[in-house]
């Protein structure tokens, strides 16, 4: 097929966009989401209610915000396991600022800047010293949360100003929360960044072949550094939201979030080996994870059991296309 003489003019595309859309990962995710939605509506009469659907979104918006940046990072071939620890450290710093009498704007600035700083620290270790990110961020994960533990011990910070509560608890319009709005806006921004800019194109190139990308004039280190900063920034924003929603800071805040964020990204069709993925997939995966946890919650299924469903979903959704291809191949040969 590859060496057959072709006309000198080579067409831009062969697949019609519709054709490729139907057989895409995103289509599979939409089908899964619709199925879960339908099952939920049948299983619980409370599900199809504007306010409960609104509550549903609180289950995933904070993690999903981080997942947007994490998707880019994983596409570039790196990973950040320290995001939950960044949340803890940023929250602790905000708590300290509250004790010192800081107002809401200062708190938000501190949360975001601490996140950015932690991301930059990870980025420097990975890009400047050329260390594997999975190990670096296991280290910084202990370090960042460790600092939170040193500061707080078994104590907690409380007493956040009432105006601070808006970010995690407020509504922009009717049932539309600030968190959801922020997530949707961020999703559009990240979609544009990844799929419509030369920056995004370079991220894909790095993920598929970092050496060839470097030879092609892509500043690999700089782009990876920016991605670590973005991931830290999103963790800082998530920290503001969570702290605002809970109204308190403990050093164990957001424990285990990193794995849920990565699950969301992988479920969204981003290759854990780098080089492939889409923001739409990640957004869909976020909604699916929210639907599963919320639906099961309405049925009084404990959180830990829900995690079984998330784990199974992750493995099945990844395994399904592989098994499907194998079955189809065996039938044809």
């Amino acid at each position: 097929m590859t060496d057959t003489p072709a006309p000198r003019h080579i067409p831009d595309r062969l697949d019609t966009p519709l054709n490729s859309a139907i057989f895409s990962w995103e289509a599979l995710l939409v089908a899964v989401a619709v199925a879960i939605f339908a099952v939920n509506s049948f299983a619980s009469p409370y599900f199809l209610d504007a306010w409960s659907l609104s509550d549903l979104t609180f289950n995933f918006t904070e993690k999903a915000l981080i997942a947007l940046a994490m998707a880019l990072l994983i596409i570039s071939g790196e990973i950040d396991l320290s995001v939950a620890a960044i949340i803890a450290l940023a929250s602790t710093m905000m708590g300290m600022a509250v004790q010192a009498g800081a107002g809401t704007p200062v708190l938000v600035a501190i949360g975001i800047l601490v996140g950015l700083g932690c991301g930059a620290f990870n980025g420097l270790l990975v890009t400047r010293l050329g260390l594997p990110s999975i190990v670096v961020t296991i280290g910084t994960m202990s370090l960042f949360r460790g600092i939170a533990f040193i500061v707080l011990g078994d104590q907690a910070y409380k007493g956040y100003p009432s105006s601070f509560a808006f970010f995690g608890q407020g509504y922009v319009w009717w049932v539309v929360s600030f968190e959801l709005t922020l997530f949707l806006v961020a999703a559009v921004i990240y979609w544009f960044l990844l799929h419509r800019t030369s920056f995004g194109r370079r991220v894909f190139a790095i993920g598929n072949n970092p050496v060839a990308a470097q030879f092609s004039g892509v500043r690999v280190g700089r782009i990876k550094f920016i991605l670590f900063c973005l991931t830290g920034l999103m963790a800082g924003i998530a920290s503001v939201l969570i702290t605002s929603r809970l109204g308190s800071t403990r050093p164990s805040i957001a424990q285990g979030y990193e794995l849920e964020v990565i699950t969301m990204v992988v479920l969204g069709g981003v290759s854990i080996l780098g080089g492939a993925g889409s923001i739409l997939g990640v957004v869909l995966a976020a909604f699916i994870m929210g639907l599963v946890t919320f639906g099961l919650g309405l049925l009084n299924v404990p959180g830990i059991v829900m995690s079984i469903f998330i784990g199974l979903l992750l493995i099945i959704v990844i395994a399904l296309p592989i098994v499907w291809r194998r079955v189809r191949r065996e039938r044809f040969t």
Partner: peptide, 21 residues
Amino acid sequence: GKQGVVIGLPIFQNISLPSLK
């Protein structure tokens, strides 16, 4: 394979990669 082409990306994106500016 290692330094030249970016396998995984389509032809046109490979060609435009050094000229993205």
